[in-house]
Each structure stands twice: as C-alpha cells, then as structure tokens.
Design a protein around this nucleic acid. Structure first.
Lengths: 120, 120, 120, 120
DNA sequence: GTGGTCTAGACCACC
DNA sequence: GTGGTCTAGACCACA
C-alpha cells in the first residue's frame, strides 16, 4: 500500500482502521488482525503498526487481550465517530471557513464542486 | 503569538502574511517588515521567519532587494490567491468531502455551523 | 473472572490459590481442582492454568500424582507463607516506604486508610 | 545506570524524572535535558528515552517546544504528585493491605521495619 | 541543535 | 501463536 507524505504512516493506518469501523467492516467486540498480519499486508514494519494500535487503544477504540490479540471496544463505533467529529469540527471546519472567507469563495461554488465530487 | 501544533510554525506565519496581502494590508510593491522585526513581534526564532520568507519567495509572492528588505511582488495578490486556491481545491476540499461522507454529516449541519461561525 | 493488567494472569491465579491455602480452604494433602475445571471456571486458557500449577509446584506448594491430580504438599501452608513473606519484606515493603517518603504521605494517612479498608 | 527487570526501562526512567520533579530538582517551566543527553547519560537507546518523554507528555507532566526541547508543565509538580498518589492509593495500598491480612502481619511489625528502614 | 518517524531485527513474556 | 520492549541506525522536518 502507498502512503502520502503529509502525515505519519501510523496515523494513515489509524484512519484506515477508523473507516473499517465506521463502515461496520470491523464490528464491536470483534477481533481485528494481528500486528504482524497487518504489517505484511500493508508492507510496513510491525513497529509502525504497533504505534497505530497504541494510538487507537489510547483513544478507547480498541483494546488488547494479552496473548490473544486486539479487539474493537464495546462502544468502538461511537468512540471512533467522536474522535473524528472532534477533529472535524474543531480543526478542519474552522480552517475551512476561514479559508473560503479569505479567498472569497461562495458556498455555491462549494456546492457545485460537491455535486461533481459525488458523481465520480 | 501562539501557534498550533498541527502545522509547522513557518507555514502558519506564511498564512498570516497571505491574509495581510489578500486583505490589502500589504500592497503590491510595498515593503514588508524585516525578518528581525517579525521574529521579535511573534516571539519566534529568526531562522523560522527566514523560512517563511524563502517559502513565499519561492512562490513569487515576495522578493528581496539586497540590503533593503523584502517586498510584495507586482502580482503578489494574484499569486497568493492562486496558491491558496490550489491548496484548497486540490487538497482540503476532497478530504473535506470524504470526511463528511464517512461521518454522515449533512450539508445542512455544515451550513448551521457556518452561520454560527459568521456571527462570532 | 477479571484480571488486572499489571501482573501476568498466571500469577494472579497463583495468588488466588495461595489465599485458599492460607485461609485453610485448601488443606494440606488435599486434592485441588483439575486444570481443566479451573480454566473453565476462570475463563482462561488451560495453558495459563498449567503455568500457575508449574509455578506452585516449583515452590513446593503443590505436587502432582500422575493421572490423579494435584495436591497441596504436607507443609504447603508454611511454604506459602514463606513465599509470600519473602516477596513482601524484600520487594513490596521497601518500595512502599520509598514511595510514601517521596510523596510525603504520613503514617497516619496510611492508618486512616487502613481503618476504612477494614470496614468494607 | 542499572535497571531492574521487573518493569520496562522507560517506566523506570519516568520514575526517576518524577523524583526529580518532586524533589524540585526540575522546576516547573524549566527545560529538561534533551533526549540524546539522557540517552548517553543513562546508557540507553534514544528511542527508549523518547518513550519516557511521550509517557510523561501524555500525563501532562512535560511538554514540548518544537525544535527547542522538553519543559516541565506549569502544574507539573501537582500532576506528578497526582499520578503517583493515584497509583499508590488505588493499586499499591489495597494490595498491601490484602497481603498483610493474608499473612497476618501486624501493623506493629510494619512499624518496626519502617524504623529500621529510616535508620539506613 | 532539537524531536519524530520508520526500518530491521532480536528477545522476551504470555496465552 | 500473540503483543511488548529494546537496540541500532537512518532520515527528515523544524527552530
């Protein structure tokens, strides 16, 4: 898998995982793949995957059963949504509005762009 | 001045400068403050400011007269706008749409938030 | 059964067993439950229980009659006490004193806490 | 420096740092040594020290100024005390009491031991 | 100079 | 089999 350069790989992997949870590909209390499996699959170092797992564990999205593996927490879906929404409303959105103001872009422009985006 | 942690300081300063230009506080062919003044004012290492100036110079938004100082280029306003719009439409906006899809946020929610944002 | 995360599960089980012996629930030369029974009851992998049994066997607290099961040794009570006291006076207590010194906790605080603890 | 084997090295280093703060060797808002310096001094890998710093940063005991170094937070002393006290009262102390009950050790025994301990 | 990320690989404890 | 810790060393971005 290819990663872009603007964000650490381990966070890009975290984003992948969040998508999996939000799309219900990974269900709550379900086991997720082992660190090694993910490392092989994404062609990264196991340590990098471990960092992703630690990050998500710190956010109560996954947890560890010793010697067995990692599992999505009972309210993993909600926690994921909260994490992402927080990021979105507190960081992305304010920057977003500031930018469109500064550039004098109208909401209509955005809408048109969105329509095109959805068609793809 | 306080900076956030999600972006390099020198780019946050660049954003400040872009705003000044877009809001016509800094006019084309006008002299802008010296590196040292900015460094003192923003409580930042002069090296960091230098980086900002180099970055903007690379984008033809400012230029240097040796021994005299830095100036906004003749088409600085346009260049700034182009730079920002490029960033916005090619990076921010696609990510933005992807996120609202993933989080199932409706355009209406965004609109409400925008109204609130404008009132502040 | 729930286990905490600061100690291996097999040692936490060993602690349980020690309590049983010290409280005379398990008497010397008496048979103790099979690995399988314990594993089912505590919802733990049988290998983990085996480790507990091996650990206690190494400390001469229990022994095995092949094909029959595990038994508390003749001086199991004493051995258990010795094991625990060693741990306590050589490891726990010194750390304990160091910590209360560092945190400037008085012996009185401890005493109060102990009184509360006993009431529960 | 020598480390024992019962706890990860990076946590043992964290304990060292906590002591420094509690003993006011490191004062609030003061700069602490760089990762590399500590690594050389303690003869461990810089990555290990980084882990310690991350751990303490997560606990709001230290913070990072980019490109400059790590500093004790404004309320670093209090945060450290809280962290340690939490550990002590919620983990160590209950185990402690449980053990002395199980072993039928009297408070007087503890006291005698403590007197000896202080004389050293 | 500072810290942050990543790789490669070893070793260990635990289940 | 699982994850956790640690080392060694490279490379990069930032101040």
């Amino acid at each position: 898998m290819e990663f872009n350069n603007s964000q650490p790989i381990y966070l890009q992997i975290a984003d992948l995982f969040c998508e999996n949870i939000l799309q219900k590909k990974w269900i709550e209390e379900g086991k997720i793949p082992s660190i090694r499996d993910i490392a092989v699959q994404l062609e990264v170092n196991p340590n990098t995957v471990l960092r992703t797992y630690n990050f998500l564990q710190d956010n109560d999205i996954i947890y560890n059963k010793r010697g067995i593996g990692y599992f999505v927490t009972t309210d993993g879906y909600l926690k994921t949504q909260t994490l992402k929404k927080d990021q979105f409303f507190n960081q992305n959105l304010p920057e977003f509005f500031k930018t469109i103001d500064m550039l004098e872009i109208s909401i209509d422009d955005i809408m048109n762009f969105y329509t095109k985006f959805k068609q793809k």
